[in-house]
Write a protein that binds this DNA or RNA. Structure first.
Lengths: 330, 330
DNA sequence: GGGCAGGATTGGATCGTTCAAGTTGCTGGA
DNA sequence: TCCAGCAACTTGAACGATCCAATCCTGCCC
């Protein structure tokens, strides 16, 4: 069992004071090169690592960022957050930060957890996923000037804080354009009920693409909650309309999967394009709009470390383009 | 901006000393009930929360456990770890612990990360997933007497340390028995190459079930790496044998998915049962053996907190039974 | 009423680090 | 010669909790 190596151990070994060792670590330029060298050698020889708890007590900074892990809902969309989380952990490590997880049943309890994490662990910042109109969580954090970045736009006030998002409209527009190029005109859209920022955005992309192609989107749109069964129901409903669509763009892979099931049951085949490029889409050969989750996570960490360490602490925004992944089903 | 509430603030407010407040928190029984009451009220009124960094400096304990987050490999099996992680975070929170994530490219670098986490953050313990024969990580931790629990058995030395695992053999046995009960005799198995603990275990369950039903398993077994394409190839190979199977049990949902694709291409249908009950299986109606991941995570936390706080610090083991989830494809 | 036992409470030291305020030694200008 | 000015390094104090040892009550018994 190796004994604890503290800054004092290093100082003794290099025959300098504790503070000089601290300076070598935190402000190397004020230490004479030969002394710096000697201290650095001692650090390596002894395998010294700064104790974060002690550092944190003095500085109030922990080099820890918190991310909420959500319950895996329908299991399909959960994988999106999973991939995001992995990217986040990797990039954070590269920047010298570590990721701490928390769960919360609802917004109120999530806010309570913020207080807990901040006072107990002196968390440096938060990455918030899945924001919505008038989110109380971001308001709480902003009020207390606690650094945070959201993955997802604040739809009400686009420049309220730092965020990273994926241009959903661009994704559905590209998907729709691809179907137009393949000769389709009556391209249906299955999306979520109006009112959610993400859902409205994805619908808007399809809408604009159709208008751009000179097609009237009227009567080609179905609104439903997310889910496989819901997607199937919406598809049957669309097929029963006077002029049914000849291709489908969906706001999620769950809906697209439901659409495929409904089509199979109805004995029809139409091209279907989903959204999120989940493992399920890959597994069954469903074309889908893929979000650059690794990139998004990396940019989140960038923006957050900017807020924490950077010279310019103004909020910044990043909008990433998704990519249409074509598979044999469209 | 609320100012910092320390143990001294609480002490002043309740007109007692810091030590008494500390006692109320850590050893309530030695404080007179009315004093305890007064202090507890002060804690609530002021919203006091103990600063972990300060506590940790004195006690050397951080109430933090570390879990590795793996790169999402084929995306299907990744979800297993995701669900496990969620359960872990929830249960840990309930026991007053928080989960910290780390990544590592290989075993050596993972071990290097252990040292980092331990000296920088004074981590209390580790939950290790995906152990294999002669794992260097568990050896490293055991040597230094660092508390850890694995999700997955140490196949070489069953009682070397605390672990939680799911009885894979019981799962494949039940799947096979179900197919036998449905009238099948020549039930094939698609599994991984011999040598991996998990893979051998799952194969053994199928093997025993067939023997129990009086069927010779010879020639009904295919070995392949994990993956959809690999599952499809193995299936085609099995179908080409002199006496092809009339039903299939697979060691993973990826393999099962490949099997389904191969069967569809071949214009055949056979009942197929997968393993892990991933979202993909649920989405396409594939029957699968479901691991109780939430339970497993909770037991991992239980065993770990036992090692950390408990009176009995001997390693303990937990083997959970999986459950066969039947869907329309079998 | 004094002494005593026992538990409740107090003050001081401590964990490892960084910040703030020194101390030392050297250079150079008057 | 003297001292201002600076660079390089050292020392003492502080962060907020817990541990330890000493002190203070309180009730009880003789």
């Amino acid at each position: 069992m190796a004994e604890k190596v503290t800054i004092a151990t290093v100082a003794r070994h290099a025959r300098v004071s504790r503070q000089t060792v601290s300076n070598v670590i935190n402000a190397p330029h004020i230490v004479r090169p030969e002394t710096r060298q000697r201290v650095q050698e001692a650090i390596v020889t002894l395998g010294y690592r700064a104790n974060q708890a002690a550092r944190q007590m003095r500085t109030g900074r922990s080099r820890l960022i918190a991310v909420r892990i959500e319950p895996t809902r329908d299991g399909i969309n959960g994988s999106v957050l999973d991939r995001f989380l992995h990217g986040l952990t990797e990039t954070a490590e590269a920047s010298g930060y570590r990721v701490m997880l928390y769960t919360a049943a609802d917004d109120d309890r999530e806010i309570a957890t913020y207080g807990d994490l901040l006072s107990a662990y002196d968390l440096d910042g938060f990455v918030i996923t899945g924001t919505d109109h008038g989110d109380p969580r971001t308001a709480w954090l902003a009020e207390r000037e606690i650094p945070f970045v959201t993955f997802g736009r604040p739809w009400d006030h686009p420049e309220a804080h730092s965020w990273v998002d994926v241009d959903g409209a661009a994704g559905t527009r590209e998907a729709t354009a691809h179907l137009v190029a393949a000769g389709h005109l009556r391209i249906g859209f299955i999306g979520w009920p109006a009112g959610s920022g993400v859902g409205d955005d994805r619908r808007a992309g399809w809408h604009r693409a159709l208008l751009g192609a000179g097609v009237d989107p009227d009567g080609l749109d179905a609104e439903t909650e997310d889910g496989i069964a819901e997607g199937a129901r919406a598809t049957r409903e669309l097929l029963a309309r006077p002029t049914p669509p000849t291709a489908l763009v969906c706001a999620s892979d769950s809906l697209a999967l439901g659409a495929l099931q409904a089509l199979r049951t109805a004995g029809t085949t139409l091209p279907v394009i989903g959204f999120d490029d989940t493992p399920v889409a890959a597994a069954i050969g469903l074309s889908s709009v893929s979000q650059p989750l690794g990139d998004a996570a990396a940019r989140c960490v960038d923006l957050l470390t900017d807020l924490l360490d950077g010279p310019h602490r103004d909020p910044r925004q990043v909008l990433l383009r998704p990519e249409l992944v074509l598979r044999h089903l469209a």
